[in-house]
Design a protein around this nucleic acid. Structure first.
Length: 220
DNA sequence: GTGTGATCATCT
DNA sequence: AGATGATCACAC
């Protein structure tokens, strides 16, 4: 077990010491078993990096590095240097409390400070290499857009209009299914407040957004 | 089942 | 090809 970092500088230093290394090499050094077939290896890279860097939040809905409030996100990058996937943020609430605001949301708390770690998206997983990591905080325009996206989506959930939810909503932040399968259900409420089962969903950052973030991050 | 880590696979 | 909806693994 690697001890959690106590400062951003320590975290960033650790992450940058991994630049250029293969995922298999890091896994071997940590005595972590190699992943199975790609379809069975979802999440393996993220969990490997969590362990390599000392993330300590476990499965709690808060930033990975609890002491310094930093969220870790690995980001798959193709040969053209762009992310080939969206980025999962957290589950979307099935019911919204009246006190819920953008500032108290899990999306906001997780995205206030992120350590992005680019990783090659192609080839054998164990041979993929780690790229240049950087710390990020959304700028004013990004924050305003994320907030507007979140509010639009949350409003639909809060008013029970889940039939209007779609991954097409949101400029940077979107909502999509987040479940074991399409038959999964969780308890929600319809427009009249009557309990109703619904598909669990999660918040994701569009790849077009993380592409912008990555482009800026490469500069520092 | 709920939350974490995501990527897969189908549709447009 | 890119985006949307579906799915996989694991901890608790």
């Amino acid at each position: 077990m690697i001890i959690a970092p106590t400062s951003e500088a320590e975290l960033l230093s650790r992450a940058r010491s991994l630049v250029g290394l293969s995922l298999g090499g890091v896994a071997n050094a940590l005595f972590i078993a190699n992943p199975g077939a790609p379809a069975q290896a979802k999440g393996w890279i993220g969990e490997l990096m969590e362990r390599a860097l000392g993330a300590d939040a476990g499965s709690r809905p808060e930033p990975d590095f609890t002491r310094i409030g930093v969220e870790l996100k690995t980001i798959p990058i193709t040969a053209n240097g762009k992310p080939n996937e969206s980025t999962y943020v957290c589950v979307a609430p099935a019911v919204v409390s009246p006190e819920q605001t953008w500032e108290t949301s899990v999306v906001f708390r997780k995205l206030q400070r992120v350590l992005w770690v680019p990783v090659e998206a192609e080839g054998e997983i164990v041979q993929r290499r780690i790229g240049w990591p950087f710390l990020w905080t959304p700028n004013a325009l990004e924050s305003a857009t994320l907030r507007a996206d979140w509010e639009e989506i949350i409003e639909l959930i809060a008013t029970g209009r889940r039939e209007a939810l779609s991954a097409r909503l949101g400029t940077y932040l979107q909502i999509r299914p987040k479940a074991a399968n399409s038959r999964s259900r969780t308890q929600a409420a319809n427009a009249a407040g009557v309990p109703e089962a619904t598909l669990p969903r999660g918040f994701y950052l569009r790849a077009t957004f993380t592409e912008m973030v990555l482009a800026a991050g490469m500069l520092d």
